[in-house]
Design a protein around this nucleic acid. Structure first.
Lengths: 177, 177
DNA sequence: GAAAACTGATTAACATGTTAAGTGGTTCGG
DNA sequence: CCGAACCACTTAACATGTTAATCAGTTTTC
């Protein structure tokens, strides 16, 4: 288990000890990594259930978003389900082929598409919802309802903090003239 | 802005009001969604900087993990960088082609591959690290160092809670027999 | 010591993430 | 009006996520 000293001196440092060669925050403690790991731990609970219904996580997000409204435009749906346009386009195409959703063009503006869930789509949601809710309840029990609410608050606060923060453009490439 | 009552009665409920037609937790408040949104808010800050160096988020994770050790085996690297095997395989192939990493087979076990960062790879890290650290510092300032540490703790606690939780296999399909 | 079982890594196949480009439809300025 | 600008959506191209299958090397078992 102990890392064996290697004979690889082709790099730079003295071989044998795992040194941090560049001064940098410990990698595994970075915020993006923590968020990724936490999210993966949560999704690992849900994926099997979704999989048994031939649904991906994103398809499930879309169906749930659609179940909450009569109709919705594609752009608004992308915002709600937190998907980028291209992803949403592909998924809607597939869900439409499976007849889980319906789509028509808006009368007022021919550019816009209006989406709604189908009867089959609703049936599917009703089939998945119980186990999904059960899993969520189990997670809540394990972690603690109060702690979970607090975590959500902190996550939203983080999101709000950063939304106001402008992204550095780093003008070292593509000078834009 | 007010949702116009639609004439779509093909579903089930009385048309006109955006009703939640299936009893379910409000979608936008689900934990996976909160985690996803928070993570995206964070990554949005880093992506431009990485992009200027022709690096994806995952490639950056791998280079950073490699910079902390002399050598590492692929499986261990996957665990450290939190990537699945297939993703890692592809990325290592590309990074090797760009000569940012080096790879050789382990002497003791010909199945295993041992990876290390190259001199060019180290130079690249040194080029990216400053702005990366600056962004992280800015995020910390905005959100608050103490709050950030607390959030990390809660995320790790969540991860630990769920790792002990076994995933339901839901025997409704593929009876396994 | 060879077949069976196992293991580390890669490849395959399909779905999504991400950015850029394309395609119609709509609005605006002259 | 009519061409330029804009807008909603889709397509394209490439990278990663995810599961299953494959492949070579190693260990187990009889």
């Amino acid at each position: 288990m102990a890392r064996k000293p290697s004979a690889n001196n082709s790099g730079s440092g003295p071989a044998g000890v795992p040194v941090r060669r560049v001064p940098m925050r410990d990698f595994s403690r970075s915020l993006p990594m923590s968020l990724l790991r936490a999210r993966e731990a949560v999704m690992r609970q849900f994926r099997p259930s979704l999989r048994h219904h031939e649904l991906t996580e994103q398809q499930w997000r879309i169906l749930r978003a659609l179940a909450a409204v009569e109709t919705i435009e594609v752009t608004e749906l992308a915002r709600t389900a937190f998907l980028l346009g291209p992803s949403l386009s592909r998924i809607l195409r597939d869900l439409e082929a499976r007849e889980l959703i319906e789509r028509r063009v808006a009368e007022a503006d021919q550019r816009r598409a209006v989406v709604s869930i189908s009867a089959d789509g609703l049936k599917l949601i009703e089939a998945v919802a119980p186990s999904s809710e059960a899993i969520y309840a189990a997670i809540t029990r394990r972690y603690g309802a109060r702690k979970l609410a607090e975590l959500q608050d902190m996550l939203h606060a983080l999101e709000n903090s950063l939304s106001a923060m402008e992204v550095a453009e780093e003008g070292s490439a593509e000078p834009e003239q």
